[in-house]
Design a protein around this nucleic acid. Structure first.
Lengths: 179, 179
DNA sequence: CGATCTCTTGACCCTAGTCAAAATTGGTGG
DNA sequence: CCACCAATTTTGACTAGGGTCAAGAGATCG
């Protein structure tokens, strides 16, 4: 599974969970759109099955609730960083991606276009920011996005991963989907 | 109860509910700060009580979960509008406030400073936007923020209230707190 | 070896921020 | 009731971060 997808501006990674909004609010049209950034495989779970599982395992409900709260935290955090200059904003986004990918440094499988989209900046400007980040020794000189100095990156971003601490725990379910 | 408060940039209104993050994630330091915009009275509920109620009324858990999801929707929506020009952004914020206040038009009990803060714009610029909105006949010429043409406002904001439809339902609990 | 997508670069523009000062308003106390 | 103070709201002048347009340079892939 090489999954990477977008929920408007929240990049999802392999193992992530998606679509609970429409589970909780069946009547509301699906408000958020999803788009695959790479080829990926997706497992679906029927509403009934979820209901049933929730019945049997109350803890599951709590966990999903937490997941929703964490998602809200991610958005809240982004709203905050959105008010900071572009460099910081991008740096923060990269930190978030690293954390959610569960790696400390290395390649982030996104194009500059994707980052521009996620950060709400023009591709042109993103490109200039990336050049700065390379200059600063945070990114490698490679074409792809490779973080080589995470510490410096975190500094720039003033990144405090606490708000994500648990998304790991929450989004990486050991789901046993048979089909 | 004349409550109005802020959770970073989400304005809370009388009857709103607050602080579930720290209920779900006790270990994480309270990440979001709260600040009163006006004098207000606040009721608190002990963690244990919540646990207990959740035990007795499974539907409560579901409702709170929905609330979290709705909060995430609000933030998501804001991230989207953040990318639109200031006028639209402010218009959208005003629409959101009206909806969450449960009124169709009239006075929004915020200062320009508050709006600036919530919208992430400078006071100076907010002021100019407000002048435009008055010119457009959306706001009254009063000093305070009074919406007199909601339809026009919604148009400007491209406001689709669906994402809030239920926040009403969710945040206005008929709580019986016997402190 | 085109065709196409992504990344770069340069020139120019415009939205929104900053600074600073004035004009209104709302109290508050004498 | 008036004078004074503090908090908002307005205005004006200037600045700057980031957008847009357009074209060129690498990559990738069939």
């Amino acid at each position: 599974m090489h999954a990477v997808s977008v929920e408007l501006h929240l990049v999802q990674h392999p193992g992530d969970f998606l679509g609970l909004h429409s589970f909780l609010f069946p009547r509301s049209a699906e408000l958020s759109e999803v788009q695959a950034l790479t080829s990926c495989s997706i497992g679906t779970i029927d509403r009934d099955v979820v209901e049933q599982e929730l019945q049997c395992h109350p803890a599951l409900g709590r966990a999903l609730w937490r997941m929703a709260v964490t998602e809200a935290s991610i958005f809240r955090q982004r709203l905050v960083t959105t008010r900071r200059p572009a460099l910081q904003r991008v740096a923060h986004l990269l930190c978030e991606q690293l954390t959610r990918l569960g790696i400390d440094e290395g390649v982030i499988p996104l194009s500059q276009i994707d980052v521009a989209d996620a950060a709400g900046l023009s591709v042109v400007h993103i490109n200039r920011i990336f050049q700065e980040l390379r200059q600063l020794g945070v990114l490698s000189k490679q074409r792809l996005i490779e973080v080589v100095n995470t510490e410096r990156l975190r500094e720039l971003a003033a990144f405090d991963g606490r708000y994500l601490d648990l998304s790991e725990l929450l989004s990486r379910w050991d789901l046993h989907i048979d089909d």
